[in-house]
Design a protein around this nucleic acid. Structure first.
Lengths: 205, 205
DNA sequence: TGCGTTCATGCACTCAGTCTACTTTGAGCG
DNA sequence: CGCTCAAAGTAGACTGAGTGCATGAACGCA
């Protein structure tokens, strides 16, 4: 990687970091793109070559995880069921307090989540990234042997449920629980969720 | 209802109708709010008192259906399972070629759907409305006796799956099928979807 | 060292959405 | 009726996001 690539990467990082810092401090709508650009010491125009919209300053990191679920399914051990692989990956992420699970209670992560939930345009775009992941996951499930219909339906269900679990974890943390307090419940909820996916609502009521 | 209310309602209708007509003819991004206002013969400012954003000119009708699923659960016959009620409602909607099922092949409805799917900002906002419905449906499921966790998870699953079914139906219609051609498959897909919800993925693979 | 390509910049522009101050008009009442 | 008030509409300026274009700076390579 040449010096050129390096500087680009660094500029990109600086811009996103600066933006998030300002947004956390003052609120997404209270900070203009012009202010972000000035603080990051680039021109407005440059900022927009790196990030197509203001929302992407915050969310582009999620875009990279768009097809995470599909990746997990493809990388599963031979013979393992896709749903099992997804469940295990989620449990592992919970154990590591992966921010994406909503179970990370460092002040920055909590504030970051809250920023997104408090800002309509950010929440909307995040939901959007999630639903793009459906296509990728459905494709992976087809490769795993599911018929196209089941693949799509299951993909939609899995991602919806994962997002919901994340929200619930975050909500608990914002209610005052520590991540460690919440951990057992979060694991229980995740297991219940995959139980629902595997065995259906009939099994639980 | 006084003359005042009447005129308000009429103005609202005129604006939305005009907007959609223009958007269908030229594309969402090719029509400015100013043009819509001028064509509808109101001021820009008036338009924005009726519709908070440009997207709402197209989508506000969906906002009203936000808690449709919750309503169906609450209105179900005594003793009937909520999932059954939702399935029956979906089957009935398919039979009536309800536009919300994606199974309506009048040129206007098809074009309308396509407009939304083709326009990133519209698609994003629509997804957003759908996920707002989760809260309402979860509440209704709790009233029906589900524990809070199961209620939320199930609500998320049901709405995700319904949206997916709608997309699939619309995609088939855009591929050239007539609504009647697609009807049987659509019913099958819906039944399969609720089967997945009720009995889980394990039952089908 | 020089040359072409890629990247950054400044500036002007369009368009969404808001604010303020002003005019119109339906509703209610004597 | 006509008066009056509040609700509704209007005009126009303003902020801020995002784009197009022409120009300048910096890297990579010979």
């Amino acid at each position: 990687m040449g010096l050129r690539e390096l500087k680009k990467e660094r500029t990109r990082e600086t811009i996103a970091e600066t933006a998030i810092r300002l947004f956390l401090a003052k609120g997404f709508d209270q900070v203009s793109v012009t202010e972000v650009a000035a603080t990051a010491e680039v021109s407005r125009r440059t900022l927009f070559t790196y990030f197509p919209t203001k929302e992407d300053l915050v969310l582009q990191r999620f875009a990279d995880h768009e097809s995470e679920a599909a990746r997990i399914v493809r990388a599963r051990p031979a013979g393992q069921d896709p749903l099992e692989a997804l469940r295990d990956a989620l449990l592992a992420a919970l154990e590591q307090r992966d921010p994406n699970t909503g179970l990370n209670d460092t002040p920055e992560t909590r504030a970051f989540f809250q920023l997104i939930l408090d800002t309509e345009s950010l929440a909307a775009r995040l939901t959007r990234y999630a639903s793009r992941g459906i296509d990728a996951l459905a494709e992976a499930l087809r490769e795993a042997g599911a018929d196209p219909l089941t693949a799509r339906l299951t993909a939609a269900q899995v991602l919806a449920v994962q997002q919901e679990l994340t929200f619930m974890n975050h909500a608990c943390l914002m209610d005052g629980s520590s991540a460690d307090d919440r951990y057992r419940e979060a694991v229980g909820a995740a297991e219940r969720a995959f139980d629902l996916l595997r065995r259906g609502a009939a099994a639980g009521w």
